[in-house]
């Protein structure tokens, strides 16, 4: 086990554990704070993969933007912290069996599959290449993403708007 493996398992553990706490926490503010660690763990995994730009975007957009907005939303909404969140569990046994089988299946296929790997050395920085590819070969996808975001914006405005009866 190399040092990279240890770092990987560390970040993976942080991600999974905090994600588990996000869904089980009774207090919605706690959930939001656990989400911080989930995002942070994922950012760590990106760094480990050599995806420096995505890691920074993850920190800046998710932790810096979305999470803060989420917390603002929670704190500015009246009485939301005292709302009882229904997080009861039903059908525990079937769920455990189903998920266990699924996990075992995923694990066994993941371990036995011969994955395609490119033994390329990590680039010094990915920002340049990423920008170049996005505006060249993947320009269609880039533009379509723009439209997707526009639709998301219109949709969000449409949902949030108060209807005049």
């Amino acid at each position: 086990m190399t040092i990279y493996d240890i770092i990987f398992y560390l970040f993976a553990a942080i991600t999974v554990l905090s994600a588990f706490l996000v869904v089980t926490a009774k207090n919605i503010v706690h959930s939001a704070f656990y989400l911080l660690f989930t995002f942070f763990g994922v950012a760590g995994l990106y760094v480990l993969l050599g995806a420096d730009f995505i890691a920074i975007v993850q920190i800046m957009v998710y932790v810096g933007g979305i999470l803060i907005l989420l917390l603002f939303g929670v704190m500015l909404t009246n009485k939301i912290t005292s709302v009882e969140i229904k997080s009861g569990t039903i059908h525990v046994l079937p769920a455990v069996i189903g998920l266990g089988l699924f996990a075992a299946f995923v694990l066994s296929t993941m371990m036995t599959t011969k994955w395609k790997s490119n033994p390329a050395e990590l680039p010094f920085t990915t920002v340049y290449d990423l920008g170049y590819i996005l505006i060249n070969e993947y320009v269609l996808i880039f533009e379509l993403l723009g439209i997707l975001l526009l639709i998301a914006l219109i949709g969000a405005a449409s949902i949030a708007r108060k209807d005049k009866e």
């Binding site: 996808i141 379509l144 993403l145 439209i147 997707l148 639709i151 998301a152 219109i154 949709g155 449409s158 949902i159």
Partner: peptide, 12 residues
């Protein structure tokens, strides 16, 4: 991406 565009609009 196209599937997401389709879904996102239809959710709203």
């Amino acid at each position: 991406l196209a599937l997401e565009l389709l879904s996102l609009s239809s959710y709203v």
